Simulated scan of single mutants.
Amino acid sequence: MNLRKGFFLLILTLICFDLPSSAQEEDKQRSWLGRQVNRMFNDTASAGESTLTIYPTAAYAPETGVELGASVLKLFRAKKDSLNRLSELQAFVFGTFNAQYGLWLDNAIYTDKDKWFFLGRARIQRFPMYYYGIGPTAVGDRYAVVDAFNVVFKQRVLRKLANNFFLGPEMDFQNLSSVEFEQPDVAFDLPTGSNGYTNLGLGGALVYDNRHNVMNVRKGLFSEISYLRYLSSLGNSFNYNNINLDVRSYNPVGKRNVLAFQMIGNFQTGNVPFNQLALMGGDMMMRGLYQGRFRDKNMIAIQSEFRMLPFAFHKRLGGSIFAGSAVVGPRPDQLSLSNAQVSGGFGLRYLLFPKKDIYIRLDLGFSKDGANFYIFNGEAF
């Protein structure tokens, strides 16, 4: 069983206690550390005012051992107008006692009246991963441990076409270097990209998005179709194409609860490196499966989640129940239901910013391989 254990250093205190709100003048008199801790307990900012929160994190994973880090979360609305959508900038840095490290950056930025929408992420990390092979029937008790330095930069620059419709260019830069495969007793054939690679994909995305709060959507629809082309003429290690579909629906159930659905389709052709194949599992889709437990050129995945935000008996505690299914294959016509995987689980939520409706989520996901534990800001989708 691949069980990931994680915790925020102050999470038990956050869950167990609700401290009374303090005045902004009193907050200014605290030390810097005191102000950060107070902001984790009390959301004193108005709906339009920006917030910056810094907090420590700690985790344990079989691949890394003990992991220590820190996270920075900035939430804001353009021109401090509460009618504008909530934007987020998030940074997470970590290190381990095994000399592994990483820096993650995520952004979802809306300008005034949604004229522009910037959606992207960056990853710089040296982090081990398990490689189980390629295809829908990869064996679970046989895997290679792949250690490598990885750089990812993906960004969409979207211009508003009409109400809730956005169109614009997209780029995806991927570099994998210093790759080392620690093979199992029965060795794998080394996959495409096992010696490292550098790839730059250029293309575009069409997005429909009527969400008002990307970190916790109460009602709305998000739909994206994108195309990326990776050409050797751009200096790439490999030539291939990627089409991605992502559809999400959020439906209120009563005053507090939300029933959410998501469907993802990832379709690739050409010579795709092993770590840019469609990867099943992780903290966002198919929770309970190790990310990359199954991988191939094509994948279709669906999931649903019932969110209780918050519980009726507590103003800051909530929960969720979720389930999903996915299948990978070398071609779209080989995506067989007989190879579909399922996962599911439940989670707790803590309302970190009441005036911005932002929760910390703690999810426990189960699959045929066992369980995985996840802690993040905002919902999985």
Rank of each mutant, 00 (worst) to 15 (best):
L12P: 03
L245N: 11
N42R: 07
G254I: 14
Y110I: 00
E224D: 12
L362E: 15
L68S: 11
P56L: 15
K297A: 01
S82M: 06
D246K: 01
P354Y: 04
P169N: 12
R293C: 12
F173W: 15
K315T: 15
Q291K: 00
Y60E: 15
G220Q: 06
I264G: 07
H212G: 08
A91M: 08
V151A: 09
D112F: 06
F376R: 15
P184M: 08
I54W: 15
V157C: 00
M308K: 12
R293W: 13
Q174F: 10
G220I: 07
R316Y: 08
V214I: 11
G135A: 12
Q29N: 12
L10E: 10
P62Y: 05
F346Y: 14
P184T: 13
S31R: 11
S21A: 14
Y60M: 11
Y101C: 08
G292V: 03
V253I: 15
M1R: 00
A371H: 07
T269P: 13
G292M: 05
F322P: 12
G329P: 03
M285F: 09
N236T: 09
F274Q: 15
D369M: 01
D147A: 04
N175T: 12
F153D: 08
V145P: 05
V152R: 08
V157T: 04
P330H: 01
F17D: 05
F118D: 04
R316W: 05
R361V: 03
E67S: 09
G220A: 06
V146D: 10
I264K: 08
R361Q: 13
A326P: 10
F153E: 13
P273F: 14
E305P: 12
Y132E: 08
R211G: 04
D283W: 07
E224H: 10
F376T: 15
Q341K: 12
L200Q: 02
T192M: 01
Q174C: 10
Y131Q: 11
G254Y: 10
N377M: 15
F173G: 11
D333R: 09
G265S: 05
G140F: 03
V258M: 11
G344V: 06
Q291H: 00
T13R: 10
S22T: 15
A70H: 02
G48H: 12
Y290N: 15
L10W: 06
T192Q: 07
A205L: 02
V247D: 05
Y374H: 00
G318K: 07
D172H: 09
L158V: 13
A138Y: 06
N2L: 13
F117M: 08
T111D: 04
M263L: 12
Y240C: 02
